[in-house]
């Protein structure tokens, strides 16, 4: 004996979850086509079937999107990310090859301001890809990440890591964070 209102809610929830999964399905189909290196109807159909099967079998809780999207700030983020990746890679390479040994490392706690899991994950991924820092531990409840930073000579170097992380976070929040997060990162 289910109540009709309850049933309607359930149906709405199901529809919402399908809408939430659409970006993921789209991304999986694109990935499938990239793997084959060709865009064709056969690839589209087999890709769609596989994507649905994969998302059903390996079910993940849907990612909460804020509904905002600003391509300009996303482009700035991607640009800055690759520029820093390029510079930092060679810095670490020279650090390995120079005669002097590295001085000191640090484990830095960074208090993020966003409440979004997705943004926190991307910030953590981006900072892990930057040579010179990787995420050693994270605290999702308090949105904190702990970064292991290479060769921080003094407290200024520690502060640099923190500023860099928060800067990336702000760019991401501006590109697809909620209005709430934008307000919070402004401070």
């Amino acid at each position: 004996m289910t109540e009709p209102a309850n049933e309607r809610e359930l149906r709405q929830e199901a529809r919402a979850s399908i809408v939430h999964q659409l970006p993921l399905l789209f991304a999986l189909v694109v990935l499938w086509m990239l793997l084959w290196g060709a865009v064709s109807w056969l690839n589209l159909v087999t890709g769609l079937i596989l994507a649905v099967v994969v998302t059903r079998v390996f079910y993940l809780p849907p990612v909460e999107l804020s509904g905002r999207f600003n391509p300009f700030w996303l482009a700035v983020f991607v640009g800055q990310f690759f520029a820093e990746l390029f510079v930092a890679s060679f810095q670490v390479a020279f650090l390995a090859l120079r005669p002097r040994r590295i001085s000191k490392n640090s484990i830095v706690e960074v208090q993020l301001r966003t409440r979004s899991d997705l943004i926190m994950t991307i910030v953590a991924l981006a900072m892990s890809l930057m040579p010179g820092s990787f995420v050693i531990e994270s605290d999702r409840m308090r949105s904190r990440i702990y970064l292991h930073a290479l060769n921080t000579k003094d407290l200024e170097g520690v502060e640099d890591v923190r500023t860099k992380t928060l800067q990336l976070e702000r760019l991401l929040v501006r590109s697809f964070g909620s209005l709430d997060d934008i307000e919070r990162t402004r401070k």
């Binding site: 000191k104 490392n105 640090s106 484990i107 830095v108 706690e109 702990y146 921080t152 407290l155 170097g157």
Partner: peptide
């Protein structure tokens, strides 16, 4: 070797 260890 660590200058700062916030995690510890």
């Amino acid at each position: 070797l660590s200058l700062v260890d916030d995690l510890a």
